[in-house]
């Protein structure tokens, strides 16, 4: 009895129960990724040689900045439309609200390949949009919409708006209605209440949503591959191409290291900021 009590109190049971999952994450995720990153610093040409050659390549720096740009634009568009939509959803009456939430969940559960493929049908040279534009006589020849940065951004916004809507609905519902009523009963116009009361209260949620969307679009593969092709190479597609087509493992590892560092930095920095703005957030 005494030994069992000791066993249950000491936390040893806790360690034992979480051991399989802990070891799996350490052994199959932390160590392999650590090994990939460490490997980039053991190049015979010098410690930082892979990074120097990465940033000396005009093409590869362009890819890095293009990826950051696409992720930033996607995040901003998703924030704007996601926030407005989430606001409407959070104020919708019960039945309609559940329906709207389901309608946002459904695309999320549909795979990324399917969702990118849908835009391939729409934006293609003989796609629906071109057929419509030609049919209406708006253009005389099909527009080249595929394999542009715009196509990639549309595909990414399509991917991430539902995520933004869903994470913001929760945040907006947690804002007490009394606060908004107080604002309007003290004479603020609906617009002023929106900008000066609702928006500041939603900032921590907006930051969380923005981090999700930014890191998601920064590392997405299928959408830029299908809608952007080689002309819109991003870090993820470059990593795959380096590793599986060129068998340039050092180059691929360098890209992997750059992606990991940028992603982790953004997540840590933004969660720090979110916590400072709202001490209540966990």
């Amino acid at each position: 009895m005494t030994s069992r009590r000791f066993w249950r109190r000491s936390g040893a049971t806790g360690w034992a129960l979480s051991a399989p999952a802990t070891l799996a994450v350490i052994g199959f995720l932390l160590i392999p990724i650590g090994a990939v990153i460490a490997g980039t610093f053991m190049d015979p040409r010098g410690v930082f040689a892979p990074y120097i050659s990465y940033f000396n390549s005009g093409f590869r720096t362009t890819v890095l900045f293009r990826t950051l740009q696409i992720a930033a634009i996607t995040t901003i568009i998703s924030l704007i439309f996601g926030f407005m939509t989430a606001y409407v959803v959070s104020r919708a009456p019960g039945k309609l609200k559940s329906l709207l939430i389901v309608a946002a969940v459904f695309p999320l559960l549909t795979g990324v390949v399917v969702r990118a493929f849908a835009w391939l049908i729409i934006l293609g040279r003989n796609g629906i949009l071109n057929q419509t534009l030609l049919g209406l006589g708006i253009t005389s020849e099909p527009l080249e919409m595929l394999y542009t940065q715009g196509a990639v951004i549309i595909g990414m916004v399509y991917l991430f708006v539902p995520l933004m809507v869903l994470s913001l609905v929760g945040v907006l519902e947690n804002i007490p209605k009394d606060v908004l009523q107080a604002s309007s009963s003290l004479g603020a116009s609906p617009l002023a209440t929106f900008w000066q009361v609702l928006l500041p209260l939603a900032v921590p949620g907006l930051i969380v949503g923005a981090v999700l969307v930014f890191t998601g679009s920064f590392t997405a593969y299928a959408t830029p591959q299908l809608l952007g092709g080689e002309r819109q190479t991003v870090l993820a597609t470059l990593l795959h191409q380096r590793a599986m087509v060129s068998f340039d493992w050092v180059g691929a590892s360098t890209i992997a290291a750059i992606m990991t560092v940028i992603t982790i930095t953004i997540v840590l920095a933004m969660s720090h900021i979110a916590r400072r703005i709202n001490p209540m957030a966990t």
């Binding site: 994450v25 199959f28 995720l29 932390l30 160590i31 392999p32 990724i33 090994a35 990939v36 890191t215 920064f218 590392t219 593969y221 993820a236 990593l239 795959h240 590793a243 493992w249 691929a252 590892s253 992997a256 992606m259 990991t260 992603t263 982790i264 997540v267």
Partner: peptide, 18 residues
Amino acid sequence: LPILVPEIVFGFALLKSF
């Protein structure tokens, strides 16, 4: 962590190291 680190990096690392 598995959803925090870029998935594509994880896939590549698993291939290379494991």
